[in-house]
Amino acid sequence: MFEARLGQATILKKILDAIKDLLTEGTFDCSDSGIQLQAMDNSHVSLVSLTLRSDGFDKFRCDRNISMGMNLGSMAKILKCANNEDNVTMKAQDNADTVTIMFESANQEKVSDYEMKLMNLDQEHLGIPETEYSCVVRMPSMEFARICRDLAQFSESVVICCTKEGVKFTASGDVGTANIKLAQTGSVDKEEESVSIDMQEPVTLTFACRYLNAFTKATPLSTQVQLSMCADVPLVVEYAIKDLGYIRYYLAPKIED
């Protein structure tokens, strides 16, 4: 028996919004430690890794490990039927071929449930090596989304250059060159507005704008985003999900031919 309950459907809606543009389907691996999903986009350029810890749920029960392959478009349809403040419960029997998603209004006067067929997906689980990143940048997630959106107008690629002075995003195309530099903030009242850079070595990497823009669909989940970079390895873009877990996107760099 698997059962997981969250106080607010809005969190699950935001999580789905954050992955459904990159992935059409995904396997939710459930164990007593929580729920995990790892999947590459169709072109195998990026990888999504979602972790939701069992202790972040209002109720969590998983007697036996189960893997639930889901069509994310179908799941999005179901979640559209929930009000943001509804409780949401996911339930499945061991070895089931369906999952039930139930929404309850705060006053319990409306209860709806949706049974969704599960899919058998080819699982290609990748081992992500432990990496000592040369640069770790933390910045407001809205600022990162704005930069990715703005620079995508000028080029398919963005060059991210991180030094101890700051982080610079550059896009060069037919129009010309756009540069956006962010310096580390001094003391700010609100932590969520700060930019911080933890640099061991300067690093310059090139990435495709369209994937970065897809990652920013996770912006509503977190006020801050963390970018971890190291020469010639995938970028990690991490959004923490408060008290529940995180979503990490890995993006393979573009490398000079």
């Binding site: 390895v233 573009k254 490398i255």
Partner: peptide
Amino acid sequence: QSKQMTIASFFRKD
């Protein structure tokens, strides 16, 4: 010209 790498060229199958 830069070449787009894939994730599989960095991360191995478990």
